[in-house]
Design a protein around this nucleic acid. Structure first.
Lengths: 226, 226
DNA sequence: CGCACTCTGTGACTTAGTCACATACTTGCC
DNA sequence: GGCAAGTATGTGACTAAGTCACAGAGTGCG
């Protein structure tokens, strides 16, 4: 049960469906939920698990990914504040085992609901139901985008997009290993290393152990259309 | 409006959510829906469309797919009797444009609902809501499987799986072009042609224009584990 | 038959993924 | 400081997959 008013405010701000909900539901909601904290790089769900709880992320991020026969990984999507491990929701609603892995990245503060409540509220509370539908639909869209990426786009272009997205405007630096980029993109470390080396030789980036620095954003982005 | 009792029986048999529904909802359901027929190979949804109706397939099949920059295609999933173009449902519930293409394969007989009804019923009728959740969740699972396939599995193995699945037990024949296999798997026609030729030279299949014949099912399936 | 159209085959080349190692850079510990 | 263990990156050689530009074969039809 959650009673601290400042926490309740924080949660209400993050989860907009609570703003339109009726007072009765809100009371139930906070009465039957709890807060959990989780450090970085902690496993959340294992492939094949049955989900008995749903976590709504208040702070932090998690990564949901697949592992292939060969050990390679690919990120399906990330979960941030205001979102929820919707695969869990999907598993709860359709009573199926979880088809992927989830792990925390930045330390997580999350609200935990029992799957029984998730199902019950989806029958009773329109705003909660809308939130669930929205979440599942969004993830479906995300995953379809991933299919498009891996099926059709060249790895070097995908890597350019990755760098442009992750290195903030004129922030210029980024802390990341080649392996973790490879795991995001669903390719292998060697491929990432080689392409990065190529970019470096062309003067678009520079690299050192564990960091990549953007040297020429404009010329790098031209790679997308050449 | 649908009133023919034999059609109503057929639909009720296909869509199990109607069996547990209350009489009032069922009356509304058939009053506000219509039947459409569609020939083979007709476009259903274009990428970027907004969906104003939801189709529940009674007979026939449709294919939902993506097209890449290079013109290659990949099938995300198929829709059969008792199912529905759930991407449409997802678009309706989350008010987003349709992110793929859909086309009829076998001629379709389908029941058409307005998106307004879809949303209204999802608020009022538990069995309908469950049906929607189930459908979206299933598709999410399907698409995740596709990601896994294209990201990690070798094309020759995927092609073996495709052949074993599509050529019925001891039916032995299949009518299909290399191009349409390639479009299903998300690869190119040449690659499919070369791998099939290879299988043929090893005596596992034989081919002629537009057909593939399974000659040695057992040895072909060994390719999956070698 | 001859023409248009679709389907399949092939070589040469580029891109991507795998495997086996060789070098680094970092951290902690003596 | 120096050394060891662990992590990160570099590289060559090879296989798998995708692209491009054609060449043929099969089919349907006037």
């Amino acid at each position: 049960m959650i009673s601290d008013p400042s926490i309740i405010d924080q949660i209400t701000a993050r989860f907009r469906f609570l703003q339109g909900a009726d007072a009765d539901f809100i009371r139930h909601f906070f009465n039957s939920s709890t807060i959990t904290h989780l450090a970085s790089d902690q496993p959340i769900c294992q492939q094949g698990m049955h989900c008995s709880h749903l976590a709504l992320v208040i702070e932090g991020t998690a990564r949901v990914y697949k592992i292939g026969e060969n050990g390679r990984e690919i990120t399906l999507y990330r979960i941030g504040p205001g979102e929820s491990c919707i695969l869990t929701a999907s598993c709860i609603m359709s009573r199926k085992p979880f088809p992927a892995f989830a792990i925390s990245e930045e330390p997580i503060k999350a609200l935990i609901l029992s799957s029984a409540d998730v199902v019950r509220w989806s029958n009773q509370e329109a705003t909660w139901r809308d939130y669930l539908f929205q979440l599942i639909s969004d993830r479906l869209g995300d995953v379809i985008s991933v299919v498009e990426e891996v099926a059709f786009r060249r790895v070097d272009r995908r890597l350019v997009s990755y760098l442009l997205q992750h290195i903030e405007n004129n922030g210029m630096h980024m802390q990341v290993t080649h392996q973790s980029i490879a795991s995001d993109l669903g390719t292998s470390r060697e491929v990432v290393s080689r392409i990065l080396k190529d970019f470096e030789q062309q003067g678009m980036i520079s690299t050192s152990r564990g960091t990549i620095t953007l040297e020429d954003r404009h010329r790098l982005s031209e790679k997308l259309t050449e």
